[in-house]
Design a protein around this nucleic acid. Sequence first.
RNA 1: GAGGUUGUAGCUCAGUUGGUUAGAGCAUCAGAUUGUGGUUCUGAGGGUCGCGGGUUCGACCCCCGUCAUCCUCCCCA
Length: 472
Amino acid sequence: MSKPSIPQGTRDFSPAEVRRRQYIFNTLRTIFELYGAQPLETPSMENLTTLMGKYGEEGDRLIFKILNNGLHEKKDADKDKLNSEWNNVLSRPYSTPVVTERALRYDLTIPFARYVVMHQNDIAFPFRRYQMQPVWRADRPQKGRYREFWQCDVDMVGSTSLINEAELLCIYQTAFQKLKVPVTIKVNSRKLLAALADLCGMPEKMIDITVALDKLDKIGWVGVANELKERGIAEDGIWQIEKVINVKGTNDEKLVAYADIMQHSAVGMEGINELGKTLAYYRSLEFGIGDLDSDNGREENIVVDISLARGLNYYTGVIVEVVCSSEAVKMGSIGGGGRYDDLTGLFGLKGVSGVGISFGIDRIYDVMEELDVFPKQLVEGTKAMLVNFGGENETYALQILQQLRAANIAAEIYPDAAKFDKQMKYANRRGIAYVLLPGDEERQKNMVSVKNFETGEQKMMSVGEAVISLQS
RNA sequence: GAGGUUGUAGCUCAGUUGGUUAGAGCAUCAGAUUGUGGUUCUGAGGGUCGCGGGUUCGACCCCCGUCAUCCUCCCCA
């Protein structure tokens, strides 16, 4: 017999882990609802055509595909087709509806876009939804990277107002403040990255530039410059980029400096303008809170960072990324998002702009564990256990049991009339607060002994008194 | 896709230059204690040493292959 195991990159969640995860979900859900978002759920699997080509070449490779059922039942003609297609599948990256036509959800944004297009007539725009569901990626698992993990997304579609961007920043701030995770929120605009490519005189190289620039934190400017060179950016262009990333100062100062450098790039000026407006809206929202601890309010952890380049292909405007700012924690981004001007256009609905953010809750969980910021009292399990003495005492215990539950006290009976110390040990391991002893003497007096498992104190009382004392 | 790490009891891990019957802690079960838990004490069960091949008189140990695992790069949450 082989040892049982679970697929690579997946995890079981123990009772205590589920409680902590639910704490995160509940915290986020409360905030999402507070901001007027509505819940949405979509299927675990989508048609492969819905997902393919939406996440870039790398993304396509990481989509978990589902093998079609009943392949062996194909008729002769179909079987020939299947055989030739199968050879294609084996010889190169290739997929075909003959072999696979469904795939597991890769993120929550594309399914949301699909939903919006399918239900456009039923939706009151602007439409703001939140969604908390697992997604799957056929990636190599490692620290902070799983093949099955959960995302919590909030997106707003049908509005181009930068108020939305500002509100999403507020949601990030509030959420991580509630969860007690110190974060830095990096903000950039895809339009500034386009402007950089303009400055180099190579607008078609925007992707190459952003991919290289994204590594600035890791490999430093020299490393980035080398990579830019390898990717075919001219010396003069690299010098322009260096000038931009060398800009230091407050967010406002940076935007002013960028405006000076990019004054001849229409798209650059547009991006700068949008970032400025987003921050202005954000300040208005934050000002309403009234507990600003400095002139900057809660802005000191929001940083305009031109080296931020989110990988997803569909972002067009403001982009954000959240990282834990604690030195002690080594973890990649724990959230990200941005504006996509024409997401639903992929599915035929033009002119609907959206903006959204995502929480990577598995990584947030890991970070919270490391920081030890989960509330201590999350376990609200069984409060009282009835010892089972068997026979008539068992019947008596069952009657008490339902009276406890009727009074909203989480209670259980040890189901077997096992040896006394075994039952006590079990209650101890479960961390149950009270043990009730309905034995011969108690039953005859119509009473029950209540033992406090923390203090060891024990007292015989009527069932009614027991209910009242356990309710407090 | 590339590179590295580690696979020994249910779990966490020891195991000497290759040498007789592979150990410990925790967990489980039984007993000291058939109505009093946490701390003790005693005893018991539990292993194809990841799998397959090779070297050797002899392999948990050395070699080759394979699978699994974790980590790094790429990319991402």
